[in-house]
Amino acid sequence: QIFVKTLTGKTITLEVEPSDTIENVKAKIQDKEGIPPDQQRLIFAGKQLEDGRTLSDYNIQKESTLHLVL
């Protein structure tokens, strides 16, 4: 699982696999929060994550925290 922290300070927990794409993660966030993926920007280690890449591409491991910017 990974954590996604929103600007409001809320933390969302997501069940993911390293092979999941960023697009996939955004879809999971939409399921939980109702935020359309095209409004979501995910930041990890100061980098904006691209939809077509996977979590493992960015070396995002379990218990990692991503930041969600709208």
Rank of each mutant, 00 (worst) to 15 (best):
Q1A: 09
I2Q: 01
V4E: 01
V4F: 03
V4M: 02
K5H: 10
K5C: 15
K5R: 14
K5L: 15
T6W: 13
T6P: 04
T6E: 04
T6R: 07
G9L: 04
G9A: 04
T11Y: 10
I12W: 06
I12M: 06
I12V: 06
T13K: 08
L14Q: 01
E15I: 14
V16H: 05
E17P: 03
E17R: 06
E17G: 08
P18A: 10
S19M: 10
S19K: 08
S19R: 07
D20A: 07
D20R: 02
D20S: 07
T21G: 03
T21A: 04
T21E: 03
E23A: 14
E23R: 15
E23P: 03
N24G: 09
N24W: 12
V25Q: 00
V25N: 00
K26C: 02
K26T: 02
K26N: 01
A27V: 11
A27H: 13
K28T: 03
K28P: 00
I29N: 00
I29W: 00
I29H: 00
Q30A: 14
D31I: 13
K32F: 08
K32Q: 11
K32Y: 08
E33W: 14
E33D: 05
E33N: 07
G34A: 05
G34F: 04
G34L: 05
G34E: 04
I35M: 05
P36I: 05
P36Y: 05
P36D: 07
P37N: 07
D38K: 11
Q39L: 11
Q39R: 12
Q40K: 02
R41K: 09
I43S: 10
I43C: 15
I43P: 00
I43G: 03
F44E: 01
F44K: 03
F44L: 05
F44T: 02
F44W: 09
A45W: 08
A45I: 06
A45L: 12
G46V: 02
G46E: 05
G46T: 04
G46W: 05
G46C: 10
K47W: 07
K47Y: 10
Q48R: 08
L49A: 02
D51H: 06
G52D: 12
G52S: 13
G52I: 07
R53Y: 14
L55I: 10
S56R: 11
S56V: 08
D57K: 03
Y58P: 00
N59G: 13
N59W: 05
I60L: 04
I60P: 01
I60A: 02
Q61K: 12
Q61Y: 09
Q61E: 10
Q61C: 09
Q61S: 11
K62W: 12
S64G: 06
T65V: 14
T65A: 04
T65H: 15
T65Q: 06
T65S: 05
T65L: 10
L66E: 01
L66P: 02
H67T: 14
H67S: 09
L68Q: 02
V69P: 01
V69C: 13
L70Y: 11
L70N: 09
